[in-house]
């Protein structure tokens, strides 16, 4: 059987074995390609097994009752294991957020693009620098130079719209996907 295969191969080959592309070269390349592709496909489950599992992904939305929040009060809720800051902003805070010259911002974004209703600011409470939790949720916390939040790790200052104003963080606090189910309930995620 093997002999027959070799014979067949040899007969069908050009005579000059030394140069040019031979059928054997093709077989080498085909085998290597097939093997590499196979290994890549086999590796994918090993890679994907480290991604968030179904039960982690399932925790990806949270409903929040806004009724008990007083004006000027900030609350923290947990979404996907991370804190989400909800700020019922006072008119002064809204004015401060809206009156900023966009050119003065590190990550320019108007306040209107970051809120659905000006009274309610909803942002992920994770510093965009290296993932620390900024301070400012309590009245006794330092709120930073712009009246928003202050990250104690490396000194990033956020304004009343959660935008980065000073410090090493490259981006504004992330606005999570959310919608108002009614006037006093918001669904985050």
């Amino acid at each position: 059987m093997i002999d027959w295969l070799w014979t067949m191969t040899d007969k069908s080959q050009p005579v000059d074995h030394g140069k040019g592309e031979t059928r054997r070269d093709f077989l080498y390349v085909a085998t290597a390609t097939f093997g590499t592709l196979g290994a890549a496909f086999a590796a994918w489950p090993l890679i994907d097994v480290m991604n968030p599992s179904a039960e982690v992904r399932a925790l990806s939305s949270t409903e929040v009752d806004l009724a008990p929040i007083a004006e000027g009060q900030r609350i923290t809720i947990k979404w996907r294991g991370r804190p989400v800051f909800i700020d019922r902003r006072t008119p002064e805070r809204i004015r401060a957020a809206e009156s900023v010259d966009l050119d003065a911002l590190i990550d320019p974004q108007p306040d209107s693009a970051r809120t659905q209703r000006p009274e309610w600011l909803v942002v992920v409470g994770v510093c965009t620098h290296l993932g620390c939790i900024p301070l400012g949720q309590k009245a006794t916390d330092p709120w930073g130079e712009y009246g928003g939040w202050f990250c104690p790790c490396h000194g990033s200052h956020y304004d009343t719209s959660g935008r980065i104003r000073k410090g090493p963080a490259p981006k504004n606090l992330e606005v999570p996907p959310y919608e108002f189910l009614d006037d006093s309930t918001v669904l985050i995620g």
Binding site: V56, R82, L130, G131, C132
Partner: peptide, 29 residues
């Protein structure tokens, strides 16, 4: 802080970090 460093990688940083964490933050996985 250290795993968040990987978010600095352009384009794929977030994906890589989530993959390293096995979640949306450092957690049980």
């Amino acid at each position: 802080v250290i795993t968040s460093l990987f978010t600095a990688i352009p384009f794929v940083g977030e994906t890589i970090t989530t993959w390293l964490w096995g979640g949306f933050t450092v957690g049980n996985p």
